[in-house]
């Protein structure tokens, strides 16, 4: 039962990395878009899905609190600075995107949006890095400082996520924007950044090999997944290269989505069944079973919540389908 809920937590996080990554990517790309018209078109492209994308982060936090009540405190504690950056980033991104058209200082809002997109992409990447690195947790459940956040390898992992998210955001815009200079610029960005991101992903993988943290129990699975990430993001770049200047882009987006989905799985499966590996005392390592709530709680959640996740997926799929028409969103909608 606890593994099932670990899987559901993973599902929420994967959905967030793909969908929320979209928002973060577009947010970070705002400075690369010229003028209010282009920026508005980009924000309107994510418009109908934006709220739906962001809620996966809340959903994941909810599953964490409910199904893994003995994990959230330690996890947040071990990554405190990154978690604070994530919370503030979520705050600023949500408020910024939805309010920019209400205020007069759009440029200020755009800077805020871009900065929060960066904080989020980096923060989530750092979080994965810290998990791979392991945390200074003692047998009593107390944490000793933020040593993992001082390790450059953790920061490389964060950087790799930022690059993946940038490619992802650009790929989405290639797919959804009308033909024009903005789309063309985004296309060229994917062509250039895709292989670069793939390269960085491979370097990060190599870095973890050299470091070989004791917490990693399944290096092979992790390696395979990391290589798939690198391949997918390179494929996105190649697909963008062959794209005509006017149409298409679905494949580019699909490839970048795969690349953004896998980091969570790569990190979790490399560590499994541990979640928080202790760097101080192997006995203090928290596994999925240690962290999970009691059987009755998990059964209740399975009955109460699991079917609704299916409903949620259906509603979000309906949302993408209903708003599938691409392009021509020049209006001053809500945003």
């Amino acid at each position: 039962m606890s593994n099932l809920w670990y899987g559901i937590l993973g599902f929420c996080l994967v959905a967030y990395f793909v969908l929320g990554g979209l928002d973060q990517g577009v947010a970070m790309l705002l400075p690369a878009l010229r003028g209010d018209g282009e920026r508005r078109a980009a924000l309107n492209a994510i418009g109908p899905m934006f709220l739906g994308n962001e809620v996966w982060a809340v959903g994941a936090a909810g599953v964490l609190v409910a199904a893994f009540p003995r994990l959230d405190g330690e996890l947040y504690g071990a990554t405190y600075p990154a978690v604070i950056a994530i919370v503030l980033g979520l705050l600023a991104l949500n408020a910024g995107v939805q309010l920019r058209s209400r205020g007069r200082r759009r440029a200020g809002f755009d800077a805020l949006i871009a900065a929060s997109g960066l904080a989020l992409a980096l923060g989530w990447g750092l979080l994965l890095g810290v998990l791979l690195h392991g945390v200074p947790l003692d047998a009593g459940g107390h944490l000793h400082g933020f040593a993992p956040l001082k390790d450059p390898q953790v920061w490389f992992t964060g950087l790799a996520n930022v690059l993946l998210v940038l490619v992802h955001g650009a790929a989405f815009l290639v797919w959804r924007l009308d033909a024009g200079p903005a789309r063309e610029r985004m296309r060229r960005l994917v062509v250039r950044l895709g292989p670069a991101a793939g390269g960085v992903a491979v370097l990060v993988l190599g870095g973890w090999y050299l470091k070989a943290p004791a917490g990693i129990r399944h290096p092979v699975t992790g390696t395979v997944l990391a290589l798939v990430i690198a391949l997918a993001v390179v494929a996105a770049g190649l697909a963008a290269k062959r794209l005509t200047a006017t149409r298409g882009g679905g494949r580019v987006f699909a490839a970048s989505a795969v690349a953004c989905a896998l980091p969570v799985l790569a990190a979790a499966s490399a560590l499994f069944p541990a979640v928080l590996a202790s760097t101080m005392d192997p006995g203090a390592t928290v596994t999925v079973d240690d962290a999970a709530a009691g059987g009755e709680t998990l059964r209740l959640l399975a009955i109460g919540a699991a079917p609704l996740i299916a409903v949620l997926v259906a509603v979000q799929a309906a949302c993408w389908w209903l708003f599938r028409a691409t392009g021509s969103r020049r209006t001053s909608l809500y945003w």
Binding site: G52, V55, V58, G59, G62, V65, L301, I309, L312
Partner: peptide, 19 residues
């Protein structure tokens, strides 16, 4: 558990519908 049911059922769905 109920707090999580809230997040999962209620406003994850709610936000999507509102959008």
């Amino acid at each position: 558990a109920p707090l999580a049911l809230e997040t999962l059922i209620a406003f994850v769905l709610e936000s999507t519908l509102l959008g």
